[in-house]
Write a protein that binds this DNA or RNA. Sequence first.
DNA 1: GCCGTTTTCGGCCCGACTGTTTTCAGTCG
Length: 562
Amino acid sequence: MDDTTRRVADLLQFMGQLLEIRGEDAFKIRAYYRAADQISRLAQPISGMSEADLLGIAGIGKHITRKIQEIIANGTFRELEEVRQGIPATLLELLNLEGVGPKTVSKLWQQMGIVTIEDLEKAARSHRLRALRGFGERKEQDILKSIEMYRQKGTRMNRLEADRIVARVASALKDAPFDTAGSYRRGVSTVGDIDITTTATAAVINPRLRAIADEIIDEGEKRTSFRCQGQRVDIRFTKPAEYGTMLLYLTGSKEFNIHLREIALSRGMKLNEYGIEERRGGVLRTFETEEAVFAFLGMTPVPPELRENRGEIERAFIHNLPPLIERADIQGDLHVHSDWSDGQMSLEELARRGEQAGYRYLLCSDHSATLGVAHGLSAERVKGQGKEIERINRTSSCTILTGIEVDIMADGNLGLPNTVLGDLDLVIASIHSGFKQERDVLTRRLLKAMENDHVDIIGHPTGRLLGERPPYDVDLGRVLDVAADTHTALEINASPYRLDLDDGPVRQARDRGIRLAIGTDAHDPAELTHMIYGVTIARRGWCGPADILNTRELRDLLGATT
DNA sequence: GCCGTTTTCGGCCCGACTGTTTTCAGTCG
């Protein structure tokens, strides 16, 4: 997203938060949040959009359009500046505390003069909070605990961590039937908490959960929340007859649920986690499966990965959802390292692992020599590796493709000469250094690499490491333009530590007909199994088999990239 | 503030759980 679009979304979000603290009408607040959300997922820069374009976006009307125009022209809007005058900026941070919402913040501020987390901590420690109406000893303790949690900053889990927690909870549930839901089920690249629904009863399950919980947050007949290995887990207990609507509700996303419920409402039906009822005193109709709910509403079932209210609901009503890629469509892995650079697998092992995975091919893409730490390959060693691969391929049903993950250096030149690159089956070009360069410099490095005829794929195009390093500052719009022009594929790096590109840009690339390549970037055998994470991101980006290079047969693949 | 196949006014997704309460407000998902 470009800076201006980002700023518009941020300021509308900010306005919503300020209005919350002021205790304004909840629907007005929601309107700002909704507008901010819509803008943050725009595929194009907002500054290029006309007034009519803006008004065409659901949830953006006359007033917010004017404010957007003001932000584009002046960097802010008058009403926001007026509202923020009266409210200390530090108050917003208090909203990050679990159990502390706008009403509480407002009360703390107006009745006790509390404006920072430090103020709040002091007041709670000296037992002054309990003087407020609606506060007691328990609440003081809870607030202190929330402050501690916030300072430890529980970050979102990557998929691998989430898988571990799910496995742990599954072991406690034993034979009880259950499904994961929430962002985990939708396949989001990082997961905030684990949502689970089960038809087993609370009476049976709650005691088992206590055995694996660090802490029980709250415990009930219908829902139990607890912390497991530092992460929050929510379990909903469901009757089998109501399982379909419960799973649908718990899977979300929130925006998907709201939109679907609005549509149900407009047809005189109320949809919740227990079923669907006629709005005027009808009986509750229940559904055992999600498919049954979708069928009743007249929709094609929406795969969980698509449930983000990005147009999939409308498409499901006209039975026109895109075909999505499946794990079984994958014919090979297009990014693997061997022990010729920093990987652990020999070339023989690569071939064997590829056969075991049922792959037709694997792209051996070791680092080029410029990347000192990775024992990268010189021009000479590239040749040597090629001979070795040729030998192994004679007896392997999984063809090892010769390749390289060549460095895009600080000046945009590549780490190996064209004469070397030209002899390889496929070339990935990636940035591994100079992350802090100016946006324009970084962007031009990528563009220059794409314009090289020998470069087939751009590896981990934004360079992010989830929870560790933000994406580098590139103009993704320009990258997509040039990728389309030069027929360069962009990678969906399937490593759970990267997932780069993520679903948003994948969708944009896919909509523009840009080809995508899924690679695990495996350095050891276990990492070859990460392919599923990449496939999931592709699905979230609305990709079908035809959008992904490595669904192709070998001959087709090489034909497409020469 | 947005929006319209009951509406240009009067709705806006819906429910669980907790703490501090004597019936509910606040928060969360």
